[in-house]
């Protein structure tokens, strides 16, 4: 464990806590893409298959359980909670996320570290996570003004993988045999997808104005 990875995990946890706060406090999920949340739930379920077979540390196990439980709870809430589901922008959340699923799975069949069930699903979860934010970014552009909690949620979500990139650079320096190309390249793509959001987030922070994404 290194400071970059720890900060990355904490940033990821904060993003999830912000989303839970928004849904719990406002009983609303306006501006949140259910499709992105479903993709994240799938990312965690397919990445943490080793939850019960490979014990790494208490921290690792606890964080995996928190990520799986929170993502499933958010999807469940957005689908079934009477107040929350009414605030879901169904007509704006129209990204064809099934294509992201299919593309990630096909790519995982082609590009993986080892042709084994868990390895292919691990690669699938890495590719899927890289593109899972797309429905959310499209929804933000369509819904024009972005409420503060939603803006913070997306910001921390983008920042966590950027910190992981520093973690991979650090691990490579202390151990030149460390290679994790699939996660690294995907992480770069994932972070790059937030580039324009980060730009408008910075502008809104500098001008102390509301976060506006151009349509």
């Amino acid at each position: 464990m290194n400071i970059f990875r720890f900060l990355g995990d904490m940033t990821h946890l904060i993003s999830i806590l912000i989303l839970l706060l928004k849904i719990y406090a406002t009983k609303s999920c306006s501006g949140i893409s259910l499709k992105t949340q479903e993709l994240y739930a799938l990312v965690f379920l397919t990445r943490y298959l080793d939850l019960f077979t490979d014990f790494i540390s208490v921290y690792n196990t606890v964080m995996k359980l928190v990520f799986i439980a929170s993502s499933l709870a958010i999807v469940w809430c957005m689908r079934n909670h009477p107040l929350v589901r009414r605030s879901y922008d169904k007509q704006l959340d129209t990204f064809r996320h099934y294509f992201l699923l299919l593309a990630s799975f096909l790519l995982a069949l082609l590009l993986h570290e080892k042709f084994a069930f868990q390895e292919v699903l691990w690669a699938f979860s890495i590719y899927l996570e890289a593109v899972a934010i797309l429905p959310q970014l499209v929804l933000l552009q369509r819904s024009g003004n972005v409420d503060n909690l939603t803006g913070q949620y997306v910001f921390f979500l983008g920042a966590y993988r950027a910190l992981y990139i520093f973690n991979w650079i650090y691990r490579y320096f202390i151990d030149p045999h460390f290679t994790r190309w699939i996660a690294c390249v995907s992480g770069l793509v994932q972070t790059a997808l937030y580039a324009d959001f980060f730009y408008y987030y910075f502008i809104s922070w500098k001008n102390n104005a509301k976060l506006q994404l151009p349509a």
Binding site: R5, M63, F67, W122, N167
Partner: peptide
């Protein structure tokens, strides 16, 4: 088979 990277990250 090829050794795969340790899955020690979240």
């Amino acid at each position: 088979g090829a050794r795969s990277s340790p899955k020690d990250e979240l």
